[in-house]
């Protein structure tokens, strides 16, 4: 068994996460898609740790998992906050970056 399959899986998972981020409006799905992209990266590091036979890649993987956790905390807090304000989970409702008409 070679690492090509793992690489393919990594690419697919990352892409699915990307598709989720840009095509869905539900804030929860967007959040989980971002998490999925990060998880794909941890898988890549784990695979590299095997192919390079080094523990360093595993450590990076571990740190990435920690980042996933940190991000989860912030993202969920933000979702709750936005829901309290807007009573909706629609990301399209947030348009304060919009340019006012001239």
């Amino acid at each position: 068994m070679s690492a090509h399959l793992f690489f393919l899986l990594v690419a697919l998972l990352f892409s699915i996460g990307l598709v989720g981020v840009i095509s869905r409006r539900n804030l929860f799905v967007v959040y989980m898609s971002v998490e999925l992209m990060l998880s794909a990266i941890t898988l890549l590091f784990a695979t590299l740790s095997q192919t390079l036979n080094s523990a360093n890649a595993s450590v990076m993987s571990l740190l990435t998992i920690a980042i996933i956790a940190a991000e989860a905390a912030l993202f969920l807090a933000m979702i709750i906050h936005l829901y309290r304000i807007n009573r909706t989970l629609d990301s399209e409702q947030c348009t304060s970056l919009k340019q006012e008409a001239l």
Binding site: I22, S91, L97, K98, Q99, L102
Partner: peptide, 20 residues
Amino acid sequence: GRQFSRLQSGKVRLYAIQIL
């Protein structure tokens, strides 16, 4: 300019699409 300023819709998802 007015037509182009429509691209700045304030919807971050659309910005991401533009980048993508």
